[in-house]
Measured scan of single mutants.
Amino acid sequence: MDVFMKGLSKAKEGVVAAAEKTKQGVAEAAGKTKEGVLYVGSKTKEGVVHGVATVAEKTKEQVTNVGGAVVTGVTAVAQKTVEGAGSIAAATGFVKKDQLGKNEEGAPQEGILEDMPVDPDNEAYEMPSEEGYQDYEPEA
């Protein structure tokens, strides 16, 4: 019985440690998101679009440190934060509304985080759909 109880105690310690790591990862992701939003706020009209992409990228980098179902929630929060940063930029006159959601080359930025393969159960990952990809044929 002692062996059984000791095993359960060790398992509990492992769960607590994993929860603490997840909590730490979420806190880091939130900190990076805040950094990115402050970065966007300090940019001029020309830099705002690039700044919004930076927020998304920093958040995406930190999301990889967070495991399990938390990833889905962090990704949703990050996307809403990026959308909010863009709205703030438009409201303050840093950028025109028609410039939001495009990178410096004018290509749409939507789907940055949505296409990231995420499995809350950590069982399997699927690649994003290939609808947006084109076949590449090298020139002879």
Results as ranks from 00 to 15, higher is better:
residue 74 V to D: 01
residue 37 V to N: 00
residue 26 V to K: 00
residue 125 Y to M: 02
residue 19 A to W: 09
residue 90 A to Y: 15
residue 88 I to D: 04
residue 94 F to H: 09
residue 14 G to I: 07
residue 59 T to I: 03
residue 35 E to S: 09
residue 126 E to M: 06
residue 5 M to I: 00
residue 88 I to V: 03
residue 72 T to P: 11
residue 51 G to K: 00
residue 92 T to K: 04
residue 87 S to D: 12
residue 21 K to G: 00
residue 48 V to A: 09
residue 83 E to M: 02
residue 133 Y to K: 04
residue 5 M to P: 00
residue 60 K to C: 11
residue 132 G to C: 14
residue 10 K to N: 12
residue 67 G to C: 03
residue 118 V to W: 13
residue 112 I to A: 06
residue 135 D to T: 12
residue 66 V to F: 12
residue 133 Y to L: 10
residue 104 E to S: 13
residue 56 A to V: 14
residue 24 Q to I: 07
residue 100 L to N: 07
residue 71 V to E: 04
residue 106 G to I: 06
residue 73 G to T: 08
residue 41 G to H: 09
residue 118 V to H: 05
residue 139 E to T: 02
residue 18 A to N: 00
residue 39 Y to E: 02
residue 11 A to F: 14
residue 58 K to W: 12
residue 80 K to W: 14
residue 108 P to T: 06
residue 87 S to E: 13
residue 28 E to P: 01
residue 50 H to T: 15
residue 113 L to E: 09
residue 35 E to V: 07
residue 3 V to L: 08
residue 92 T to M: 14
residue 105 E to F: 12
residue 68 G to C: 04
residue 2 D to R: 01
residue 130 E to F: 09
residue 46 E to H: 15
residue 9 S to K: 10
residue 87 S to R: 03
residue 126 E to T: 12
residue 19 A to Y: 15
residue 60 K to E: 04
residue 55 V to Q: 02
residue 129 S to M: 06
residue 39 Y to Q: 07
residue 12 K to M: 09
residue 112 I to C: 06
residue 45 K to M: 15
residue 62 Q to G: 04
residue 107 A to R: 07
residue 65 N to P: 03
residue 46 E to W: 02
residue 68 G to S: 02
residue 101 G to T: 14
residue 72 T to E: 06
residue 27 A to Q: 08
residue 108 P to D: 05
residue 84 G to P: 02
residue 10 K to P: 00
residue 47 G to W: 15
residue 137 E to M: 11
residue 21 K to D: 00
residue 61 E to K: 14
residue 76 A to N: 07
residue 6 K to L: 15
residue 72 T to S: 05
residue 63 V to Q: 01
residue 60 K to F: 15
residue 28 E to Y: 04
residue 120 P to H: 06
residue 47 G to L: 10
residue 84 G to S: 14
residue 74 V to I: 06
residue 132 G to K: 07
residue 27 A to N: 12
residue 106 G to F: 12
residue 121 D to I: 10
residue 102 K to A: 11
residue 53 A to D: 13
residue 114 E to C: 15
residue 54 T to W: 13
residue 124 A to E: 04
residue 38 L to R: 10
residue 51 G to N: 04
residue 28 E to N: 04
residue 85 A to M: 13
residue 46 E to Y: 02
residue 25 G to W: 12
residue 24 Q to G: 09
residue 100 L to G: 15
residue 4 F to Y: 11
residue 25 G to E: 09
residue 41 G to R: 09
residue 73 G to I: 09
residue 136 Y to I: 06
residue 83 E to V: 09
residue 6 K to P: 00
residue 27 A to I: 13
residue 18 A to W: 13
residue 124 A to H: 15
residue 79 Q to W: 04
residue 105 E to V: 05
residue 7 G to M: 13
residue 69 A to H: 14
residue 42 S to E: 04
residue 65 N to W: 12
residue 1 M to Q: 00
residue 106 G to W: 08
residue 16 V to Q: 11
residue 49 V to A: 14
residue 37 V to M: 07
residue 47 G to M: 11
residue 133 Y to S: 04
residue 23 K to V: 10
residue 33 T to F: 14
residue 97 K to G: 07
residue 127 M to R: 06
residue 82 V to A: 07
residue 123 E to M: 11
residue 94 F to A: 06
residue 95 V to R: 15
residue 137 E to A: 12
residue 126 E to F: 03
residue 117 P to F: 08
residue 53 A to R: 12
residue 113 L to Q: 08
residue 75 T to S: 07
residue 92 T to R: 08
residue 41 G to Q: 12
residue 95 V to C: 15
